[in-house]
Design a protein around this nucleic acid. Structure first.
Length: 490
RNA sequence: CGGGAUGUAGCGCAGUUGGUAGCGUGCCACGUUCGGGACGUGGAGGCCGCUGGUUCGAGUCCAGUCAUCCCGACCA
């Protein structure tokens, strides 16, 4: 499995690609830029979905579903929104095929041209706000707290498995509020939920902050984001929460009568995370031996592998494994017993190591005699012989330990790769080497643009409550009162 | 959209001056194995991306075409 697997040092991009494919997470499909998410990868995504969905519902949100297609005219209603998405839209122009008169397969029937083209949604603000108009008349209809799990299509020039695919899966929350304060509070609440999810479930430390005007979502007044640092020193935007102001309400004429009987535009937010989180997860923890999964998201947290020569031995081992498995499952631990006879134990060890299963238990005749098992942890690759007595508590504890260890390891990595820089020379050098660079910035888009042109670095985020500190912009030398985070990004 | 590369067995690849389609791995059967990717024997598996041309003969030469991947610019 891990044969012909590149190391991170050799070629990080290659390592990532190989890992995704060889660990059975996803594959390139017959369609350019679109991936097939395989069962093992999808199982991880399902666990992410389940955890997020619960967090959304616990904060009062409901799920709904809106159409895949959006009438073209909807896109022209919010000026900056069109501008942001126009270049990457798939457009449906016809609704029928027919047999090629020349006898070669099928062709698009020219008589089946659509009156108005349909856009395959790149995001759903427009169709949703067009719908909200009919849902909202009074302040009593607010707030609307809706989330949708869906697929979207963005026709990107270049794609990478999970990180940027033409079609991807995500959730998009779209909320409507009577006041600005409430909408801002929602925006903030959701970015906090994303940060909590990233840290508690993915064991991935994130920075929270605000996007600069250049990086802001098309149509938003303010974009909040979480950013994580990948092992190659590049930043990855892992989630965003947008305060949309009244932009979409105005574009789609969504008004309500307030308590004071005044007609007002509705305030909006939208927020989302995507299958890109899979990429973030992989690039945060995995190593040259393959995938490393945090126990909270691993499809199976423990794999048990029998070691035996004769069928009678397997029988005795399986009986013991059955006991162990039941006791672990009683603790809510997800366990897989791999008793396939066609593969050797060594093969299985490598297989599950590559697939990132947090804990492996091996049990053979020797263990049966001694009342022990061999327990190996994926994060440190340590192996220990443990007494079977109380194994459920031991494993439960170990899984918690691994979850914490992965977070701490990633946290230290980010810490060691965050640099405070004051001169343009140092800035350029550090950006070249990678990591987050904390530097002063004069607050203008022009400067940000020039820095990007010269170094490829962008402002990943502006801290929400920056530590006041007088300084000079690293590029222009103009005065600045706090530092912002720069990095090269995915 | 620019640059680079590749299409041959499920997967990874080789294929010389044009002359019977190969290797590794995986797959199937049987046997021996099994504490870190076991081995033997036998077997199945091919529109050589597609279209056209040159030739007695094309995986190989020529022209076209389609597709995918990688690197950039654009983006979650």
């Amino acid at each position: 499995m891990a044969k012909n697997f590149s190391t991170r040092d050799e070629n990080y991009a290659q390592w990532y690609n190989d890992l995704v494919i060889k660990a059975g997470l996803a594959d390139n499909s017959a369609v350019r830029g679109c991936m097939v998410i395989k069962p093992y990868g999808y199982a991880i995504w399902e666990r992410m979905q389940a955890a997020l969905d619960k967090m959304f519902k616990d904060t009062g949100h409901e799920n709904a579903y809106f159409p895949l297609f959006i009438p073209k005219s909807f896109f022209s209603k919010e000026a900056s929104h069109v501008e942001g998405f126009a270049k990457e839209c798939a457009v449906v122009t016809h609704y029928r095929l027919k047999n090629d008169p020349n006898g070669k397969g099928v062709i698009v029937d020219p008589d089946a041209k659509l009156e108005e083209e349909l856009i395959v949604r790149p995001t759903s603000e427009t169709i949703i706000w067009d719908t909200y108009r009919t849902w909202i008349q009074s302040y009593r209809d607010l707030p609307i707290l809706v989330n949708q799990w869906a697929n979207v299509v963005r026709w990107e020039m270049r794609t990478r498995l999970f990180l940027r695919t033409t079609e991807f899966l995500w959730q998009e929350g779209h909320t409507a509020h009577a006041t600005q304060e409430e909408a801002l509070e929602e925006t903030n609440q959701m970015i906090n939920i994303y940060a909590e999810f990233a840290e508690k479930w993915m064991a991935m430390p994130v920075l929270k902050g605000i996007k600069s005007a250049n990086e802001r979502f098309a149509g938003a007044v303010e974009t909040y984001c979480i950013e994580a640092l990948m092992q190659d020193g590049k930043a990855l935007q892992a989630g965003t929460s947008h305060f949309l102001g009244q932009n979409f309400a105005k574009a789609f004429d969504v008004k309500f009568l307030s308590k004071e009987n005044k007609l007002e535009h509705v305030w909006a937010t939208s927020w989302g995370v995507s299958t890109r989180l899979m990429g973030a997860l992989i690039m945060t923890h995995s190593d040259d031996n393959g995938l490393v999964l945090p126990p909270n998201l691993a499809p199976y947290q423990v794999v048990i592998i029998p070691i035996y020569k004769k069928a009678e031995q397997l029988e005795a081992i399986s009986a013991k494994v059955d006991e162990i498995k039941k006791s672990l499952e009683a603790k809510g631990i997800r366990v897989k017993y791999d008793n396939r006879d066609s593969l050797t134990p060594g093969w299985k060890f490598n297989e599950y190591e590559f697939k990132g299963v947090p804990v492996r238990i091996a049990i053979g005749p020797r263990d049966l005699e001694n009342g022990t098992v061999e327990v190996a942890r994926r994060d440190t690759l340590e192996k220990n012989i443990l007494e079977i007595t109380d194994i459920d508590n031991k494993i439960e504890h170990l899984l918690e330990l691994i979850q914490v260890n992965l977070y701490q390891k990633a946290y230290s990595f980010r810490d060691e790769n965050t640099f405070i820089v004051d001169t343009w020379e140092d800035f350029k050098n550090q950006i070249e080497k990678g990591g987050f660079v904390l530097a002063h910035w004069d607050g203008t888009s022009e400067t940000e643009e020039k820095i990007k042109q010269e170094t490829k670095a962008t402002i990943r985020l502006i801290p929400v409550n920056p530590k006041p500190e007088t300084g000079k912009c690293v590029f222009s030398g103009n005065p600045s009162s706090f530092r912002v985070y720069f990095a090269k990004a995915y």
